[in-house]
Amino acid sequence: MNIFRLLGDLSHLLAIIILLLKIWRTRSCAGVSGKSQILFALVFTTRYLDLFTNFISMYNSAMKLIYLVCSYATVFLMYFKFKATYDSNHDTFRMEFLVVPVGGLAFLVNHDFTPLEILWTFSIYLEAVAILPQLFMISKTGEAETITSHYLFALGSYRALYIVNWVFRFYTEGFFDLIAIVAGCVQTILYCDFFYLYITKVLKGKQLTLPA
């Protein structure tokens, strides 16, 4: 464990908590893409299947459980409890356009052709593009609530910090996982224009609006 990975995990946890609290306290999921949340729940499910078979540490197991519980709780709130506030008219990205190619790629490019490893690879590739429905929704509505932009900033920062962690681990342990690194770079690049808008607008107290 290194500080970059720890900060990355905390940033990820912060993002998940921000979103869950936003939906719970405002009793509304306006502006949030339910499809992205379903994809994130799928990412955690396919990545943490080894939760009970491969014990790494208390921290690792606890975080996996928290991510799983929070992601399913978010999906539940969006599609059941606060379904009336779910903006399905703007959340129209076709998830199958992501899941099918990612599933195929996971079969072709992986470290080990075993079910668990292919599912892990699938989760890594899927996580890289899982935010697209959310970014697409914001581009359609042309704006995002400030709390949603904080959520996205924390979520984007988590994988950016992981990239620093991978550089650190390469130089200190000689460890590198090319699949995670390439997918992590793609994932972080997808946030770039959002990062620009966040830093130039939200941090100056303005509403996050996309140029029409």
């Binding site: 080894d50 690792n60 991510y67 490893e117 892990w120 962690n165 000689g174 460890f175 996982d177 995670a180």
Partner: peptide, 10 residues
């Protein structure tokens, strides 16, 4: 080693 068999990252 690239991509260890056990993935120790979240």
């Amino acid at each position: 080693p690239s991509g260890g068999e056990t993935h120790d990252e979240l």
